[in-house]
Design a protein around this nucleic acid. Structure first.
Lengths: 247, 247
DNA sequence: TTTTAGTCGACTGCCTACAGCATACCGTCC
DNA sequence: GGACGGTATGCTGTAGGCAGTCGACTAAAA
């Protein structure tokens, strides 16, 4: 038996190589954005990020471009990169797209998922419920993402899964505040979703997923309604205040 | 009246700026791939492309990364970039996703599109039919893309439109051979689609679009069935034969 | 006081250079 | 004859540097 065949499981292979600097930078910047250290509309100066992360400008540039492709930052040619400002309208549209993609995923997953897949779903669901019960919002959100990602994987359509993952990453940005509000209800829905998938009932799985994501969407919109819109921080190139040399 | 308000039309603004080198390089490489000058699986050496296009490696690198994000090339860390090898399975999945996105777009467009939108659709449709009648396959494919893009735009969901555009760009790669086969039938379907959108009939618009994209998909799969798969050119780093210095 | 021209500063875009690494080739040992 | 280790090669990943360009600030004119 060849060594490469031994690992039938996907994740088993590949030692966690330090990867390229670019990928590390991408994750670091995403983290900075999600955590709010980089505010929407803020001008991202390459050299500053480079210094902050202890790398040169090149990996930062490449990271910013990739992040631009995924909708995290806006790239204005000749001006630089700005943290994307998520409008209410856009969030609504994004969540609508997520509903579309995940509903289809759930339908397909109900048709394709095997025993093993269902088992993994149940395990994730248990972890999520545990997280909610111990009030660990971050863990709950993370597990939620993992669960949804697994559903899209089980759909058997790799392209669909990849696209859904891309959308989900963006959704996650605004997802944290909602999670606290939705709490346990969300995980009950997950449980019935898994039941439907296990039963191979495509119709029901699709319907549950649609309702589920729509609940999240409604919850988010409701939440946002309350906080009045920020005073539209137009993306303008920040400028370091002129050094008051001698005065 | 402000000057910027004068141009109500979208395309009217923006002088065709020389754009960044990166964007030019992206388009150039896409063209090289679509035209077949760069074959699937081929190792893309940055320095060679740089020399070929008359630029330095930096813009080429950035272009390759963006193209990787859009599925044109595969980036193997530490090894370089390879032209993506489109498998039959992946094409099927990609077309399935396109069906999903465009069907939803058509449904929304039927609800949102105004008179002006319908008029523009009709204009594009006429152009496409003219292209088919004069046997200009390239123009027909281009117009087809424009028409579908316009439908997604008219859906009113920008996120959906952007995602559909991304998928459509990839689809277009394998679309040309199909277009010749489908010919006129495709444009008859477009016409009825526009009729449904004009009538505001969401159900019918969605159904027509679904059937339409599924026809394209079936046509493509049928076409591919005939040509036996290539002997799997595993993506290996090409190496220039050692210079037989003195012999 | 409002508009307009001019200047300065800083950042982006691109190029060049270097270090590390992965692969292919080749001789040697079992 | 086949497997293994050494060596060479050329590519990628990263760093640093320079010129072009955009925006902001200042001062002068209407």
């Amino acid at each position: 038996m060849l060594l490469s065949d031994q690992a039938g499981q996907t994740a088993a292979a590949k030692i966690p190589r330090p990867a390229t600097l670019r990928e590390s930078v991408i994750e670091a910047i995403q983290e900075l954005i999600v955590s709010g250290q980089l505010k929407p509309g803020q001008h991202l100066v390459e050299s500053e990020l480079a210094e902050l992360l202890g790398v040169s400008r090149q990996p930062v540039r490449e990271a910013l471009q990739q992040l631009s492709g995924e909708g995290w930052v806006d790239l204005h040619p000749g001006q630089g990169a700005f943290v994307h400002v998520p409008t209410l309208e856009e969030a609504d549209q994004l969540l609508a797209v997520r509903t579309l993609l995940e509903t289809e995923s759930a339908r397909l997953a109900a048709g394709h998922a095997g025993e093993d897949g269902v088992k993994r779903l149940r395990a994730l669901c248990a972890r999520g419920i545990a997280a909610v019960q111990s009030d660990d919002v971050d863990a709950a959100v993370a597990t939620n993402s993992e669960l949804h990602a697994l559903v899209t994987d089980l759909s058997g359509n790799k392209v669909l899964a990849e696209l859904a993952a891309q959308v989900a990453r963006r959704v996650r940005w605004y997802h944290t505040p909602v999670a606290r509000q939705r709490g346990m209800a969300s995980w009950d829905e997950h449980t019935s979703l898994i039941d439907a998938i296990e039963a191979g009932d495509e119709q029901r799985a699709a319907k549950i997923m649609r309702d589920h994501t729509e609940h999240t969407r409604a919850s988010y919109m409701e939440q946002r309604e309350n906080e009045p819109a920020e005073p539209a921080p137009k993306p303008v190139r920040r400028r370091r205040p002129r050094t008051p040399s001698a005065s």
